[in-house]
């Protein structure tokens, strides 16, 4: 058996504000999919409360029963005391692994006996010494930060750390105190009226020449392109390929990644079909030491 057959597929948390029913249906479908690892929770805006922590735990147990490894992900930008208190509950629970998406979560996790954590891609780990420091505090899996290129990744001695690569989906590029979706509707964040529920795939921010550039998702700014790293399925440093959910083609994408890892489909044919199943431009620039938006064939 070659190494690529051992690659796992993971599903990132839903970055958008999807309603409760759709979310439940979505994860019922995930339970039947070839995904191995599922990350759950609200990671963008703490005001979105369609699902409570208890709801996420219930979904998590159902997915676990379906044979999936489940991870609870923490909020990416922590500002309010109430947000820290939800995060503390996530870090304290022992049912599921925890993905720390900011240093607050790392700090809270190190306070508990079961201190293992997964470092989310928004933690700034740029060099071996930073990785080693977090390893000494319980880091067991590392989701590669977007700015790293393939060569930079290969400079690391990962040891027993599992490496997860964001392999399909929009990149999370920035976080702000300001909600840009609310701003578009001339509202402040406190009076947002949950207007982001109108944009289940984010809100396109185009240049004045109508070219795709960025996507607004509440306080998060995403890439206008879909990052595609299917090519990394043959990279020995990568253990897990992560797919970020979108409503239009998520399960088609999962199926294509699965077929390529099982060698039922070549990487070239996989790339072709992936490109066909999305209406958005694709990119892989960071991986090749170029601008993140670029595509290197």
């Amino acid at each position: 058996m070659t190494k690529q057959n051992t690659k796992k597929l993971s599903l990132a948390p839903i970055p958008y504000f999807w309603d409760r029913d759709y979310t439940h249906q979505f994860y019922q479908q995930v339970a039947q999919s070839p995904i191995d690892i599922v990350y759950l929770g609200e990671v963008v805006c703490s005001k979105r409360r369609a699902l409570s922590l208890q709801d996420w735990m219930t979904i998590g147990h159902d997915l676990q029963a379906a044979g999936k490894q489940v991870v609870l992900s923490t909020l990416s930008l922590v500002e309010a005391a109430s947000e820290l208190s939800v995060m503390t509950k996530i870090c304290q629970q022992g049912d599921f692994m925890v993905e720390a998406n900011d240093m607050s979560a790392v700090q809270l996790r190190t306070k508990f006996e079961s201190n293992a954590f997964i470092a989310g891609s928004s933690l700034n780990i740029y060099n071996q010494r930073s990785l080693d420091k977090l390893k000494s505090l319980g880091l067991s899996r590392w989701v590669l930060p977007h700015e790293h290129n393939q060569q930079a990744l290969h400079a690391f001695d990962l040891g027993n750390v599992e490496l997860e690569l964001p392999a399909w989906g929009r990149l999370s590029l920035a976080y702000s105190a300001r909600c840009f979706t609310a701003r578009t509707h001339n509202r402040s964040k406190d009076q947002c009226g949950f207007v982001c529920d109108q944009y289940p795939d984010g809100l396109a921010m185009k240049t004045q020449e109508q070219k795709d550039f960025l996507v607004i998702n509440g306080i998060q700014t995403q890439s206008g392109t879909i990052q595609n790293h299917l090519e990394a399925i043959n990279d020995d440093a990568v253990d897990i390929l992560r797919i970020t959910p979108q409503q239009n083609n998520c399960f088609e994408v999962i199926a294509l990644f699965d077929q390529v890892r099982k060698q039922q489909l070549s990487v070239t044919d996989g790339q072709k079909q992936l490109t066909e199943c999305t209406v958005h431009p694709i990119s892989n620039g960071y991986w090749h030491q170029k601008a993140g938006k670029d595509w290197v064939a």
């Binding site: 930008l77 928004s122 700034n124 700015e147 990149l171 620039g285 960071y286 030491q289 601008a291 993140g292």
Partner: peptide, 21 residues
């Protein structure tokens, strides 16, 4: 800075180079 400092990749997304790297 409108975005959280240290976590803004807008410039590197557009050019390859940004505040962090």
């Amino acid at each position: 800075c409108v975005m959280v400092e240290g976590r803004c990749l807008l410039s590197s997304y557009a050019t390859g180079l940004g505040p962090n790297n």
